[in-house]
């Protein structure tokens, strides 16, 4: 059966991991002030560019295909989410469960074929 107490170490781990990471980020900031390496100037604080100020806002429009990938990801990741419980209970649900999932997979495969033929998977 589910042993929820097993999740408590993970929570404690989360606390320790966040603390450790935060220490790594903020301690050097304090140390550099003490050692005197903290010495910012305008040029140092400007964003990275090849020797000139940036022409435009870096957060510009980007290719719509990234959205497309994200949408496809949601579809197939959800499909995987449906498959997980099915995978561990295959023994109990038998052929009926297997067939049902195969029908589901076939429908999604048809969706993939459609996306493929429509060029949604191309990056050219």
């Amino acid at each position: 059966m589910t042993d929820l107490s097993q999740y408590l170490p993970i929570l404690i781990f989360l606390g320790i991991a966040v603390g450790l990471s935060a220490l790594f980020v903020f301690l050097p900031m304090g140390v550099s002030r003490l050692t005197g390496t903290h010495n910012p100037d305008a040029a140092k604080l400007s964003e990275y560019e090849c020797g000139f100020p940036a022409f435009e806002d870096s957060r510009s429009q980007f290719d719509v295909r990234f959205y497309l990938v994200a949408i496809l990801f949601i579809i197939f990741d959800l499909e995987a989410a449906f498959l997980f419980p099915w995978a561990v209970s295959l023994q109990d649900i038998g052929w009926a469960g297997w067939t049902t999932m195969m029908v589901f997979l076939a429908e999604l495969a048809l969706g993939l074929v459609y996306a493929w033929k429509k060029g949604a998977l191309d990056w050219e």
Partner: peptide
Amino acid sequence: GLALLIWAAF
């Protein structure tokens, strides 16, 4: 619908 979808895709 599924058959027509594939028809449309091709």
